[in-house]
Amino acid sequence: MLNVEKLVAGYGKVEVLREVSLDVPEGALVTLIGSNGAGKTTTLRALSGMIAPWSGRVVLDGAEIGGLPPHEIARRGMAHSPEGRRVFATLPVQDNLLLGAFTRITGSRPKGDVAADLDRMFALFPRLAERRAQLAGTLSGGEQQMLAMARALMLNPRVLLLDEPSMGLAPRLVEEVFSTVARLKAERVTMLLVEQFAAAALDVADFGYVLENGRVTASGPASALKNDPAVRAAYLGQAH
């Protein structure tokens, strides 16, 4: 489904990603873990076109998408719920969701039933339903995170990139985020999940990659990574 080969990217002259390769098979939940500054966000940005890859290949459904502008990549079915949520603050919740379906409404992706999907999102995130007319900027952090995820799902994506959906949330909400991810996995939504809560991420994921200093240093089935002594020592210690 999504294949990344030797992806190199950075900012200005600073190289951040050094030949990152990873695979996200159809229907799988793959997690990318690593400490702060390892390059997780940069990886997702390079995949969705927010920054242009310097070299390497990004292949979605057999077609090379590396270097395309973000709107072209979205039109091919990649949804990205970015770090920091980035909801459209001055627009109501409902409009944020409709914009998630922009490619479908305007015909660059199969339309499907946008209204039914909207209802589905409101069923998945009942708090958004109560606040559908409220401006997104006035939502709480947890609600904004739900909105960012729901907005990305409205694309009916082939693959969904989630960048630290638990960031800055109270423990109860973190749990809620993870149970939502588990539900989406049960619905066979293909996902690449970036997380700081490595243990929880490996619990729900099928596969995992460990990123260190812009390099993939370990990878494998999530259960195997969880038991890998090196990974345990570095990422599954007392902190999480």
Partner: peptide, 16 residues
């Protein structure tokens, strides 16, 4: 309006 709010995020929606 989305572009005015956050150009990068608007791009992720498939907006040129």
């Amino acid at each position: 309006v989305a572009t005015a709010n956050d150009r990068d995020a608007a791009g992720l929606m498939g907006i040129n």
